Amino acid sequence: MAAGFDPARLTQARRLAGLTKKAVADELGVSPVAVSQWEAGATTPRPDNIGHLADVLDVIPPFFSAGRPYARLDGASAHFRSLRRTPATQRDKAIAYTEQVWELAHALEKRVQLPPVDLPNLPTDVLVEDPCAPEVAARMLREHWKVQEGPIAHLVRTMETHGIIVTLSPFAGAATATVDAFSTSHLDRPVVVLTPDRANDVYRHRFTAAHELGHLVLHGEVATGDPQQEKEADRFAAEFLTPSAQITPRLPARLDLKVLEQLSGEWGVSVESLIYRCREVGAVSDASYRRAYQRLNQLRKLNLFRPTPVEGYSGEIPILLTRAFELAEANGLSLKDLAAELSLKLPRLRLLLGAPTTRPELRLVND
């Protein structure tokens, strides 16, 4: 194993564990410099250190072996929905998770034909010169995907049928709330990662998915991290989900929350989004816009406008990877075989697949 040790795998495992080099060094009783040299490939850890590393980082020793397909990403390759409040360690964890999602998809695609990636290349004059580029891009994508007029009933499923890998997983545990969502188009398949913390409201979940789709369409070759890109992705999402030409005639002349709630359920967007849309298309004044937001916040505090979880909306829960595995399994691939091929523990593989744990949950109650 030491001779075939892959330093990039150590970096990936450490980032997935959310540990610094010093933290790993302390666990092993070595210096942080030694861990840095292992990750740089300058030196190789001893066999006993490899076993200890596997224990500390919750992987199996073969995980560190060289030779498996590997897609390296860096921080500039992913658009983070909440970049400023996402700690660097959590961004690293998210990126390492995405690398493993790609590896899983790559392994499955050797056995199952996944939908081809179908994202249009927008003209440069639209992306660079048109101040309405996000809205133009959203309309062009609806046309390219032959989306019928009106609401998009199953957004996540629509994205998957056009070759985009979408995942919904608590990959960062309790820290998922700081990550929110992110995406990358720097792999041969675009990946959008959504988190359960945002899935407690299906409308926010859908808007977040559309926001990340906007990054894939608008910012595929652009360096990430510009706040302006986040605004553009929001504008894309609003136009993609509620095209101005279609939604404007439906918006009330006065900000009637009851009417907006009905439109919310019909179009699959939040009341907040529709209030903002009213101001965006010039249907209401800024003062009316602010009053409506204040009124809605008051009603939410009274639990009169409750969020709707995503669980009841099958078309908004990713299934591409799980269905691909089910098809491969029907043709002879077992979960254990796939885990061995990827050098992953079974719980880790189930997490990547989006499959529920097979262990029953123990609940303790007071008599």
Rank of each mutant, 00 (worst) to 15 (best):
A3D: 14
G4H: 11
F5N: 03
A8V: 04
R9S: 07
A13N: 07
L16P: 00
G29I: 13
V30T: 13
S31P: 05
A34Y: 02
S36E: 13
E39N: 08
T43C: 01
P47Y: 01
I60D: 15
F63W: 14
F64V: 06
R72Y: 00
D74Y: 00
A78S: 07
S82K: 12
R85H: 05
R91V: 03
Y97T: 05
W102E: 12
W102L: 13
H106N: 14
V112E: 14
N121H: 09
T124V: 11
A138N: 10
P151M: 11
H154L: 04
E160P: 10
T161R: 15
G163W: 01
I165S: 06
L168R: 11
L168V: 04
F171V: 09
A177H: 08
V191M: 09
V192M: 14
Y203R: 15
Y203P: 00
H205C: 09
A209M: 11
A210Y: 02
E212P: 02
L218I: 04
P227H: 03
Q229L: 14
Q229I: 04
E232W: 01
A253M: 09
L255A: 12
L255S: 08
D256I: 03
E266R: 12
G268N: 09
I275N: 07
A283H: 06
A283F: 02
V284M: 05
A287Q: 11
A287Y: 02
A292G: 04
Q298R: 14
F305S: 02
T308M: 08
I317R: 15
P318H: 04
L321I: 07
A328Y: 01
L333R: 02
D337E: 15
L342P: 13
K345P: 00
R348T: 15
T358G: 15
E361M: 13
L362Q: 11
R363E: 12
V365Y: 06
D367T: 03
